[in-house]
């Protein structure tokens, strides 16, 4: 068994995903553009678990989620739970997933992203004691759809990085 290498690429891609999740659009861009932000962290974690299931485990995903919670100001543990759950599902399906077409994978991403965003929404409603609004649900679904649409390009970029930089 060859030694693990290229861990910094995984770390860098996770940091980059976090960066993209908080970067602000320049003033003057229309407001609706901010609505179209996909869940970058989900895509990156999904890719690495599928491609290298021995490198990104449950605990790591959970810790990444914990950092995301602090970054986004969620109650501690919400994203942690979500990303660990996604890792669990991906991990139990990864052999089959690799055989899927890109569209089929995107469909699974859509399901996972919807579940994750619903968990986030529910956590916000419960911890903040807010009442349910349809706008929140629409936002959730838009994010999920955008995440699925971004899967093919993210996949191509990360695969290119993995092969080029020989991450194993």
């Amino acid at each position: 068994m060859s030694p693990a290498r290229g861990g910094w690429v995984i770390l860098l891609s996770v940091v980059l995903a976090m960066l993209l999740s908080v970067v602000q659009l320049p003033q003057g861009t229309p407001d609706w553009l901010a609505w179209l932000r996909p869940n970058w962290l989900l895509l990156v974690v999904f890719y690495w678990v599928m491609a290298l299931p021995h490198r990104l485990g449950l605990i790591t995903a959970w810790l990444i989620g914990l950092f995301a919670d602090v970054l986004h100001g969620e109650a501690l543990g919400v994203n942690a739970f979500g990303l660990a759950g996604i890792t669990y599902v991906t991990w139990s399906l990864y052999e089959r997933l690799r055989m899927y077409t890109r569209a089929q994978q995107a469909l699974l991403v859509l399901v996972l992203a919807t579940l994750l965003e619903l968990v986030l929404l529910a956590a916000q409603l419960v911890t903040l004691g807010l009442s349910f609004e349809w706008m929140g649900l629409v936002q959730t679904l838009v994010t999920a759809v955008m995440t699925a649409l971004f899967w093919p390009p993210v996949f191509l970029v990360l695969r290119w990085l993995r092969r080029h930089l020989k991450v194993v």
Partner: peptide, 16 residues
């Protein structure tokens, strides 16, 4: 996974 889920839930409850 179950342990992590319980831990997460605990964290959420304590933190909020």
């Amino acid at each position: 996974m179950l342990a992590l889920a319980i831990l997460s839930l605990l964290l959420v409850v304590i933190d909020s």
